[in-house]
Design a protein around this nucleic acid. Structure first.
Lengths: 351, 351
DNA sequence: CAGGGTCTTGCAAGCGCTTGCAGTAAGACG
DNA sequence: CGTCTTACTGCAAGCGCTTGCAAGACCCTG
């Protein structure tokens, strides 16, 4: 890339960015004309010859519009923020990609921020982003009880809740049907002929998990299987917590279940390592299923039966909803996408 | 969270954000005083009593400073952008956390953007971020040849290259010693008594990989081992490409190596599945090592021997360097952190 | 009591941009 | 040839904030 632009340097040789005024001065015309010439929507207002001169000069001087300054007048910042719980969480990536793929065509760049799954951090973040005048916010890291903060912010800026559902909230929610996903796992266990099953519960404050629980339990009950009572719930939906709950399940219960539903994939993998540690085989002694269909689930042995979470689609839809709200549409509706069961080697019929 | 703030509503009931002028009007004082009272650095300039009244009023009206407007005067946007190659790449997360942990104490929020490992996208992104007047950029997704674009931008805004090294570039580079890491693996193979080894090369345009190659090769040579010639290099450093290269290695070579160095963990895992598919055992028939020490490497069986990549530290240091540049420090130096070998079950002595 | 600080506050300019309005020139029309 | 459009351009205000400067009030010196 050759660099033939005239640079504006101050006495110290530090480069100053070219402004509209610089271009105007260069051409001895008014900044307004330059502004209009460079805006695709208003460029027809200016004479073709002048416009070409302006474009040439702008390029030569290396002019870049200042989005901050522009937003002061227009009220738009071309920025949308995605508030996530934890950037390390791999199921976030497809969601982010979905959002980016939708908004980038509008010249909007998504900002990503992280709450560490702490509701106070969420509050602060929302505050900060309000200060930044972002065009919209997509909250993918909501916890039970975050509704009021989100609704309060929704009065100032378009808000959408995505991925993790939230009940009784007046903003649009884009997610998939966790209840149905739980049902699918329960049904799958029943189809395989299991009689005694158990769950490793994810943290109740993240509402996906109670929904998965509900769906699973209802499928189990209507199929007439027996579910061991849950000992405890995970503090965080992680590998370590999955291992801890599995230990407790095997320690406490007098019965050993023949099929276990861990509320997400990392928990399931943690549980698998514990099962093996205890000298039990998967799936011969215990079948196990997870949730999310993360990339690593197909790499482990045996492959983990799980439910595909349509992250990209959720992100894309959430962005769509956010853009609509921003455009001033009134009745923007919530969206619920469908889960898909992915049976793999970790679940098998009862011998 | 109770909501007792007085809202400024227009005739349609739409909430308008409170501005400095609103607070000033409320108290019948000048906006300058309000501005000063609310800035920690200048709040001593204003009388204690007035300051308290101002703070009370600001709170009551729900005033939030407009960062965009402020940045117009101050020249700072309190924003730093991290340009990554691929958000789905898990080793990115600790780097991002490292950056965030350093800048957040300054009230700066990192923006994350993605290039999809495409140099043209990087160019566009840099341009866009220049328009956004970000305070600094950290490029974690650089490829060979991106130097000129980065240097050009460096004349307008502090730039630092992180994680992926870049040679002959005039901006600070924060990374770790890939050459040394490669050496460690080579030495490890030699220590275990292997005689015939091979590599699965990562894409040469990402400069970490040639460095790993160099280090490994030099260790191998000085230990007097034989290295099979590399057939091909991966197009992307992924599971699939690792599998493809492993297939080719086993197909093409007349010799079978007893130890293989895959240039990163996903490639190594891809290779492992191929090795097994072919009926060979790990580590009895073939030892294999990866690079990065991603979380999943300890979950698979056997555990993958690898080199720990200090992502958090790299991110933290890169942010530190960026902040220094932004503060106007002149001679900010490149940083190189140390790799650490993590021997696990996937490598073993030659029987 | 004059002269000199020290505190507080307000004024006004300006950051880089957009935009309503008015002004000019040129062509169109009767 | 006068009047109306039409096409283009500039003026000036203003988005919400910061900041140099000056002014006023007050207190302290000698």
């Amino acid at each position: 890339m050759t660099d033939t632009t005239d640079r504006l340097e101050d006495s110290f040789g530090v480069v100053r960015r070219a402004t509209l005024a610089d271009v105007a001065r260069d051409l001895k015309i008014s900044p307004s004309t330059v502004s209009r010439a460079l805006d695709p929507n208003r460029s027809t207002m200016v004479n073709k010859a002048t416009r070409e001169k302006i474009i040439e000069s702008a390029e030569r001087l290396g002019y870049r519009p200042d989005i901050q300054a522009r937003s002061l007048m227009t009220g738009r910042t071309q920025t949308i923020v995605v508030i996530a719980a934890d950037l390390g969480n791999r199921w976030l990536t497809p969601i982010l990609h979905g959002v980016a793929s939708r908004v980038s065509v509008e010249g909007i760049v998504p900002i990503i921020a992280e709450t560490n799954d702490d509701s106070r951090v969420l509050d602060d973040l929302i505050d900060h982003m309000l200060s930044r005048r972002v065009d919209a916010m997509i909250v993918v890291g909501a916890r039970r009880g975050d509704g009021p903060s989100i609704e309060r912010a929704a009065r100032m800026v378009p808000m959408v809740v995505a991925a993790r559902p939230l009940q009784d909230v007046s903003v649009p929610v884009v997610t998939h049907d966790d209840r149905r996903g739980g049902e699918m796992i329960g049904q799958h266990f029943a189809d395989l002929g299991h009689r005694v099953v158990a769950q490793l519960l994810g943290p109740g404050a993240v509402l996906n998990f109670p929904l998965r629980n509900e769906g699973f339990t209802s499928a189990i009950e209507s199929a007439g299987l027996r579910q061991l009572p849950a000992i405890d719930e995970a503090l965080r939906p992680t590998y370590d917590e999955g291992a801890r709950l599995m230990h407790r399940l095997l320690d406490v219960s007098s019965d050993v279940p023949t099929a276990v539903f861990a509320h997400n994939d990392p928990m399931a993998i943690g549980a698998m390592s514990v099962i093996r540690e205890r000298g039990l085989r998967i799936p011969e002694d215990i079948s196990i299923a997870g949730y999310n269909d993360m990339p690593l689930t197909s790499l482990i042995n045996p492959g983990l039966t799980t439910v595909r979470y349509p992250g990209w689609e959720v992100g894309h839809a959430a962005a769509e909803v956010a853009l609509r709200l921003f455009a001033g549409e009134e009745a923007v509706e919530s969206v619920s996408l469908n889960p898909v069961l992915k049976p793999r080697g970790s679940t098998a019929p009862l011998p």
